[in-house]
């Protein structure tokens, strides 16, 4: 792939002329995420292959999108359709290298639906601030946590709120008499 650049460590870049910037580039442990601007953003990444994640991946695949699914458990991919033709990646999403293997640098949208709110929040902020993914969708179980992601151009889906609203709506409309 063209997008996998060799100079992850910044070694192939031409050396800057001034000395001060040189020092900053010579960081000993260059665990630096890949920030090169991608040629195109066309991937849909689904993180967490639970019921919701798998359904979204299946739907995206049917719609002809370029779907990648990431999960740390290999067995989770059983929820995907037999006809699913996208990539599946096994790995710990807390390590940014897994995300880079999933071509996060060329992602158009990322849907984060792991079962752990903390991982979801961390990933959302990582994608927003470092990889600058244009569309980020996050599922959060705990509505209190959504304050951390407000005003950051991140779409938050709260299953609790959705079911609460729905229930209230059905009840006010009558329901079982």
């Amino acid at each position: 792939m063209k997008l996998k650049t060799k100079d992850k460590l910044g070694k192939n870049k031409p050396l800057p002329s001034s000395k001060i910037t040189k020092v900053e580039e010579e960081n000993l442990f260059a665990f630096i995420p890949n920030r090169k601007k991608p040629l195109l953003r066309n991937k849909t990444i689904v993180v967490g292959c639970g019921r919701l994640g798998a359904s979204i991946a299946n739907k995206g695949n049917k719609d002809g999108k370029n779907v990648l699914v990431v999960d740390n458990n290999k067995n989770a991919f059983e929820l995907l359709d037999d006809t699913f033709s996208g990539y599946t990646i096994v790995g710990d999403v807390l390590d940014y290298k897994t995300l880079e293997n999933a071509y996060i640098t060329s992602a158009k949208e990322i849907i984060i639906t792991t079962g752990n709110d903390n991982i979801n929040i961390f990933l959302a902020l990582l994608c927003r601030n470092i990889y600058q993914v244009p569309n980020i969708y996050v599922r959060l179980d705990d509505p209190n946590m959504s304050v951390l992601l407000e005003n950051k151009d991140i779409e938050i889906i709260l299953p609790f709120k959705l079911s609460f609203d729905m229930l209230e709506k059905i009840r006010t409309e009558g329901g079982n008499k």
């Binding site: 709110d117 929040i121 961390f122 304050v147």
Partner: peptide, 16 residues
């Protein structure tokens, strides 16, 4: 044990 938990503690403390 979990980096995400650590991150959330820190962000909560800083922002709220």
């Amino acid at each position: 044990t979990n980096d995400a938990n650590q991150f959330v503690i820190c962000t909560l403390a800083k922002s709220l």
